[in-house]
Design a protein around this nucleic acid. Structure first.
Lengths: 116, 116
DNA sequence: AGCTTGTATCGAAGTTTGTCGATGCAAGCT
DNA sequence: AGCTTGCATCGACAAACTTCGATACAAGCT
């Protein structure tokens, strides 16, 4: 039996036949990488602080009970996920948020939300 | 539009924005647990299939190149995250999505997005 | 040139995660 | 009762993750 045609298009009737495409494997991998970056309380708090306004690392590190290398590691993961970016200005390094990555996540979630 | 002044004693300059509260540790832990559940391509695809419509496990398992216990394990994690729920009906088990969890994630993301 | 401070990178240790085969349980059969 | 099918749980293993101290790099000092 072919499971290609999962959608019975039963009583759905008029509108919304198979609302969102079932999320192909490639797109799922890309999205999952970003979600995984948010799957840690420390990184979530870091992102929320950075999204509020551009922040220097020297303000972020003392806000946690973690070592400086650990905070630096989490910032690197957020950056690799495309959620933030940084720049060195003299002695200090400043981080800011990249809204596009958040937009992609919201797009997926609202599509799933709409289906449900 | 009330901006609570949680500003750090830093010399933030004139206005000291700090829009949303910086996401307390407890809420960050709860949200991160849900984001972590989405941090895997298999679970993301499972959720998108389940969100489209209520689905029987017997339709989900053959859609992946993974063993049946592995799919069952991923479904359990999604359920523990509050993203889906299930019910046994005779021989088969059916899963459906819980939109509230998605709403919470969208709420966090759009708040962060607004700040940035 | 040295010294000091801010940040990133480098191993390493301990924990968690993804996956599997084997097994167990539930429900519908004959 | 037995047999078969659908799904969950168990135990194990390799891979990945989080965290740390030690170290290296970068920039502004004296």
């Amino acid at each position: 039996m072919s499971k290609q045609d999962l959608a019975p298009a039963a009583s759905a009737g008029c509108c919304a036949p198979v609302a969102a495409a079932p999320l192909d494997e490639e797109r799922a991998t890309g999205l999952a990488a970003v979600f995984k970056a948010l799957g840690d309380p420390v990184r979530l708090r870091l992102l929320s602080m950075i999204a509020a306004r551009e922040v220097c690392v020297c303000e972020l590190t003392p806000a946690f009970d973690l070592s400086q290398p650990t905070i630096s590691h989490h910032l690197k993961l957020l950056r690799q996920a495309g959620l933030i970016d940084c720049e060195r200005r003299g002695t200090w390094v400043y981080y800011w948020a990249l809204p596009d990555a958040l937009d992609r996540l919201v797009g997926f979630l609202t599509a799933a939300r709409a289906d449900a």
